[in-house]
């Protein structure tokens, strides 16, 4: 389903459809050289286009997944060492005979970040200026998203929530990437969030927030990284909470628990 909102200086378009079929998954995999998440919402996107200049910022699944890191991943499953040791033991006891298919527990063919913890901040042709990291950390920094203003419940003229991909990490956790937008009378705000839980290993949240002040013509983009161990988050679940698995897959709640590790702010004037 396609939706759009064309009042004000920006055109806002969203599209939501079903997940990719086998054939398209194959095409993505050939192009990107990695296995795709279980659910890739290939036709989904959220796009903001500045009417006067034609400049845009867009979030879509293909561009997002093309930022998945290749090479040895920095996280591994909790039971990796036990599993490898047992396979090595078996191989030493029952050697592979000539002609049999061989296996190697120390070699990953075409390794990639299986947690799909991307740092994607959107696809754009806006000329963003990055403010120094030391500035971005400060509350007194002049260029920042006006959260006080956003806490006021100004009427929302357009809202949407678009999923780009989701993977269950082979039943070892979850990773989702979704984009939400709300458009008010004189501004818009969007949140693109990567949420990842690797069971008994770690949680990660990578958020890209974009705020546009229509009058000022300024686009502010804030990127943050949060991370914490699985045990750290699990310990924070209130004792009276019964629905344990619900808490463990609730990005909003986990976001309140995880410590901030990195913040980057850039802006573009048009």
């Amino acid at each position: 389903m396609q939706r759009s909102f064309r009042e004000g200086p920006w055109n806002i378009e969203t599209e939501k459809g079903p997940i990719l079929g086998n054939e398209d998954v194959g095409k993505y995999e050939d192009k990107l050289g990695i296995p795709m998440p279980e659910m890739v919402f290939g036709s989904n996107f959220l796009r903001l286009t500045h009417k006067d200049s034609g400049k845009f910022i867009c979030f879509n699944a293909f561009d997002a997944l093309s930022t998945v890191k290749l090479g040895e991943p920095d996280l591994k499953l909790a039971h990796t060492d036990v599993w490898k040791a047992s396979k090595k033991k078996f191989k030493s006891e029952v050697p592979v005979e000539p002609g049999q298919t061989d296996y190697d527990v120390d070699h990953v063919h075409n390794p990639y970040d299986w947690t799909y913890s991307i740092e994607y901040q959107g696809t754009t042709d806006l000329n963003f200026n990055k403010i120094p990291e030391s500035e971005a950390m400060k509350d007194s920094n002049e260029i920042q998203i006006p959260y006080t203003k956003l806490q006021r419940k100004e009427p929302i003229m357009f809202f949407d929530d678009v999923m780009l991909y989701e993977d269950e990490l082979g039943d070892f956790g979850i990773c989702t990437y979704s984009v939400k937008i709300r458009v008010m009378q004189d501004s818009l705000f969007l949140l693109a969030r990567m949420f990842m839980r690797a069971d008994n290993v770690a949680f990660r949240i990578r958020d890209t927030r974009v705020f546009v002040d229509f009058k000022l013509g300024r686009v502010i983009r804030e990127y943050t990284e949060k991370q914490g161990s699985y045990a750290f988050v699990k310990d924070k679940i209130p004792l009276w909470e019964h629905d344990f698995s619900k808490m463990m897959r609730d990005p909003q709640w986990v976001d309140t628990i995880l410590p901030l590790e990195k913040i980057e702010i850039d802006y573009a004037d048009i």
Binding site: W83, V108, H109
Partner: peptide, 14 residues
């Protein structure tokens, strides 16, 4: 996934 019989998963186990 050419010419490989068994590959270790990028996840570390499996």
């Amino acid at each position: 996934f050419d010419s490989v019989d068994w590959s270790l998963s990028s996840r570390g186990a499996g």
